[in-house]
Design a protein around this nucleic acid. Structure first.
Lengths: 348, 348
DNA sequence: TCCAGATATTGCAACGTTGCAAAAACAAAT
DNA sequence: ATTTGTTTTTGCAACGTTGCAATATCTGGA
């Protein structure tokens, strides 16, 4: 549903009152008004008062673009995420904003809701305010769609998107991490281990890579992966995890462990297990992925694969800084370290 | 700890390659390069190729400030939050970005970590990229500190900050909401009800108002508020709620209900209760505030006061739009509707 | 009164881009 | 060869601001 707003005519609204107008009103030069606005010391008190009065009366606000143009560009980075309110992305965004502030960069956050059209628009910087660099966490965008005009801003991809070789990329090693998580459940004596989180409808690689790691671990333990225990989901939120687990239980699947591809899925799955009277970890061991804060305070606390988020963000910003400094660099792929965080939900 | 980064000299980095440089390299006019960059249709294929080659070779990127200056300002709003990764703020930010996109406004997100100095800097727009408007969720800033220069951008305050009358403000009615939440626990037969979440060290009013509502409800039921059951906290996160509840239990407080000033505190408190073997809601009923998504999937699910977040964001943006259109408007205070969301944790 | 030395104010130019409208080059038709 | 119409390219000006350097005004001391 398109909502129409009272049109805010920027041409009239932002541009109308300029230093020139204020100067005319206060009967001083443009330069003097600028001096007042910028708290330049050598302005006579009476003049300053007169100018301030004119500013208030006319409602003058400095034009940011003009100021920036004059003073020299300030570096602006767009952080493009599927959704900010997903805890994992919220935590990434928090680290990102903090790290960017350290470097005196401005961050501008966009949300795509995972929609293909909006992701495509963001990638070329055609939509939005324009940025000097883009950090992009794609969802629907396929690898082969990445093609960019010659004057498009540099992009760093966040997350799994293998084999492109066209843009810089920073991600955890999902296959290895999934293998370790599954191996951990196996080490605890679990043998009927489900996997929740494949998204077959998306071109996103994450689900496929984690499934691969999961299968490798089973195979390494001499078990044959059972396709009936690999549960696809629509999105990666709690409701999807809850639903997937409900399907498993309704179907009478005989499981004693679950590897969920995100903590949110895991928390949803645990919710269903609790409602069904299954004990975690006694009846079913659960492990997730992302190490979101909620997992540290759930009942029981959630075991998880914990990527080093501050490091991830630093790698991304370094990557972008390098590329801004030298646009001829070849595309690089960098790997973020992770570790298993074993808590109650998978306690052996 | 101050980290020093390889200096990214913007003067050299962003400003150096301009249309003029590309034009010289490609042996065409500046205007033709601009035509290529903007996909203007009437450019001969050979010329276009030549210009694109020059762009790639020199690494040209358009100067955003200059473009904006020429084309007319695009409205930019700073959203200043204590922390983005707190679920409540993350959800607010998500609604905010979505609503701003609808209006074709650009959003900058800033994080203060609740630090007084940074809040003060943001308020006057002295730090940061400069914005046409600021939406501000203060934490440490006292009401009497709000004083602004004549050309500072308009501000809308988010959350409790009563009696200032200097800037626009949008908030829920905390006193009424707290009263209703407490009354709900009372209606379930609870009589020894604790309150967790007062922050006596902050000038933030929220805690005081919710405490007031809590006490009013007790008084209305003929009960005398017991100061020993009002637990102060440092921050509003899960660990703080967990700690406060542990203090209560260690002290042997005989409680059968808790009103937590945020859902995060409530989830922490429920964690402690579970660890202590107290059943929620049978032994202790719990109700929170904010309606974060985690509360809908906790075990047990969390009752809460649910502010209408989409409405909150719309009110804020409307407020800002009105003020941008007419700077002489008096400061307004607007109230966001809320409702009780009763789930398992307080089931009667 | 006049001159130095400070303080206060100003005009000009430029930041990099694009709208406008004119000019140049080209192709097709007479 | 000339006209007509179309495609391609260009020069000029302006967006609103501030750095620079110059000028105007004021203050107090000789």
């Amino acid at each position: 549903m398109a909502i129409s707003y009272r049109p805010l005519d920027l041409g009239e609204l932002m541009t109308r009152v300029t230093l020139r107008d204020v100067a005319a009103q206060a009967e001083v030069s443009v330069r003097t008004v600028s001096n007042v606005v910028n708290d330049f010391p050598h302005v006579a008190p009476a003049t300053r008062r007169r100018v301030q009065a004119a500013i208030s009366e006319l409602g003058y606000r400095p034009n940011i673009a003009a100021r920036q143009l004059r003073q020299g560009q300030r570096l602006t980075i767009s952080l493009v995420l599927p959704e900010i309110d997903s805890p994992y992305f919220a935590e990434i965004a928090a680290h990102f904003v903090r790290a960017a502030e350290q470097r005196d960069w401005t961050v501008h956050i966009e949300q795509t809701d995972g929609e293909l059209a909006r992701e495509r628009a963001m990638l070329n910087g055609t939509h939005g305010p324009g940025a000097d660099g883009i950090v992009f966490s794609p969802w629907s965008l396929a690898a082969n769609e990445i093609q960019r005009g010659p004057s498009a801003p540099p992009v760093v991809m966040l997350g799994e998107r293998p084999g492109t070789g066209l843009v810089d990329r920073v991600a955890v090693d999902s296959v290895a991490a999934a293998r370790q998580a599954t191996a951990h459940l196996l080490a605890g004596g679990r043998t009927r281990i489900a996997a929740i989180g494949l998204q077959p409808h998306l071109s996103n690689e994450t689900g496929r890579l984690r499934t691969q790691g999961y299968r490798e671990a089973l195979a390494a333990a001499g078990l044959t992966p059972d396709p009936a225990l690999e549960m696809p989901v629509e999105r990666l939120h709690r409701p999807d995890g809850a639903r997937a687990m409900r399907h498993l239980l309704d179907r009478g699947a005989d499981i004693d462990g679950v590897f969920c591809f995100t903590d949110q899925l895991a928390l949803g799955a645990m919710h269903t297990l609790a409602a069904a009277g299954r004990s975690v970890p006694d009846d079913v061991a659960v492990i997730g992925f992302d190490d979101i804060e909620a997992g540290r305070y759930s009942v029981p606390t959630l075991s998880t694969v914990a990527p080093d988020k501050p490091r991830l963000v630093e790698l991304v910003l370094d990557c972008l800084a390098d590329r801004l400094a030298d646009h001829t660099l070849p595309a690089r792929e960098r790997c973020v370290p992770h570790r298993l965080e074993i808590r109650q939900s998978s306690h052996p």
